[in-house]
Amino acid sequence: MLLELSLWLKPYISGFNLFSYVTLRAILAALTALLVSLAVGPWMIRKLASYKVGQSIRDDGPKTHFSKAGTPTMGGSLIIAAVTAATLLWADLRNHYVWILLFVLISFGAIGFIDDYKKLILKNSKGLSAKAKYAAQSVFGAIAAYWLFVSADVPQATTLYLPFLKDFAWPMGIFFVVVTYFWIVGFSNAVNLTDGLDGLAIMPTVLVSSALGVFAYVAGHIVFSKYLGVPNIPGSAEVVIFCAALGGAGLGFLWFNSYPAMVFMGDVGALAIGAALGAVAVIVRQEAVLVLMGGIFVVETLSVMLQVASFKLTGKRIFRMAPLHHHFELKGWPEPRVIVRFWIISVVLVLLGLATLKVR
């Protein structure tokens, strides 16, 4: 929106030429999303509290969590609003990747909103059934996957690449839709499972989205992509704006979500940002790198899968409680220690992911 205005004003005022640079607009998008979050956050928390949209606590969970009962949740809607506003203000709205990412963010956020609304407002403890939630995720995930497939204008946009394997390139064809679907839906649920402690999910989200922004910038730059051995995806540089907005909104949300949290993300936020990360990774052709950088999300999900499989097959549990962060709490780790150590691991994984830019 503001890009169009700056292009119109550029012939009259040369300084507006600066807004044609994606790096400047990415910085402004991050700051815009951060300021929107900080400005709207207190009002939203008061509003959620007035509606008595409080978090319910599992009886079998760590006893230290009982004090969190009643904390306002559905705060993820703040992230969605901030990201959407910043992206619409600073991105090139003629770019189809921008609209696909906003579609994924908002549609998956809507699924989470309905689930949270049923649980917290209508007092239906089950919320959306697992089948209904997965069906809705599947519909929107499949739409986004097919949209990316039909809008791909270069072969490399639907080719699978792997880090460390320079000569590996598999043109996926229609199978691209399947891979994209699983990455969007899979990471949507992975972030949702990770969102169990104050700030645990949002800081890795900020780190991973920022790193994916670097990949998006490189993939959209024909010289840098060739030099670093990254597939050149025309138009993907605008994805940097979305990634920056997600990072800024995440930091703004962390202001209120840090321990002890004033507000929780809820499914509305976790499902949305997880799906968005999956979609960004697919666009910039870094699905495998997302698995590495988002390793916290992956391990948390695997811990749940292993726990369920072990209990069904042997009647025994591998962990004291799943997801994994609860296992460490029940071992006696204070919540802040679990959170910060998971953050540290996330930083290391993101740095390793960025290192793949040169090790190819």
Score class of each variant (00 low, 15 high):
113 F>Y: 14
177 V>G: 00
262 M>K: 15
96 H>M: 11
163 P>N: 01
275 A>W: 04
55 Q>T: 13
330 L>G: 02
250 G>D: 07
24 L>T: 04
9 L>I: 15
356 T>P: 13
66 F>G: 00
321 M>A: 14
348 V>C: 12
122 L>V: 14
309 A>G: 03
136 A>N: 04
129 S>V: 09
10 K>C: 00
90 W>N: 05
36 V>R: 01
288 A>H: 06
187 F>H: 14
346 S>F: 02
64 T>H: 07
316 K>M: 10
24 L>M: 08
296 I>L: 15
247 G>W: 04
197 L>M: 06
183 W>Q: 06
61 G>V: 08
26 A>M: 02
67 S>A: 12
343 W>D: 09
81 A>S: 13
254 L>G: 10
309 A>D: 08
69 A>Q: 14
141 G>A: 12
96 H>A: 10
86 A>N: 08
139 V>T: 07
55 Q>P: 07
261 A>D: 09
273 I>M: 13
169 A>R: 09
183 W>C: 03
33 A>N: 07
201 A>R: 04
116 D>T: 04
25 R>S: 03
166 K>N: 05
308 V>L: 09
322 A>F: 06
246 L>E: 01
341 R>C: 12
21 Y>I: 07
284 V>Q: 01
92 D>L: 07
98 V>W: 04
341 R>G: 02
341 R>Q: 14
302 L>H: 06
12 Y>M: 07
26 A>V: 02
118 K>H: 11
249 A>M: 10
212 L>R: 01
56 S>Q: 13
286 Q>K: 08
26 A>H: 01
211 A>V: 05
301 T>F: 05
112 G>F: 06
40 V>N: 07
3 L>K: 08
132 A>I: 11
136 A>C: 13
222 I>W: 11
224 F>A: 15
248 G>I: 03
218 V>W: 03
159 T>N: 03
116 D>F: 08
337 R>K: 15
99 W>S: 06
119 K>P: 11
251 L>F: 15
144 A>S: 12
230 V>H: 04
258 S>V: 14
4 E>N: 12
38 L>K: 02
146 Y>R: 04
11 P>I: 12
293 M>Q: 09
47 K>G: 10
315 G>Q: 08
193 L>M: 09
309 A>C: 04
67 S>W: 01
168 F>Y: 15
310 S>H: 05
328 F>R: 00
227 Y>G: 01
321 M>Y: 10
295 G>S: 11
231 P>M: 01
306 L>M: 15
135 A>V: 12
97 Y>T: 03
55 Q>I: 11
344 I>N: 01
337 R>S: 15
53 V>N: 02
214 V>G: 02
270 A>E: 02
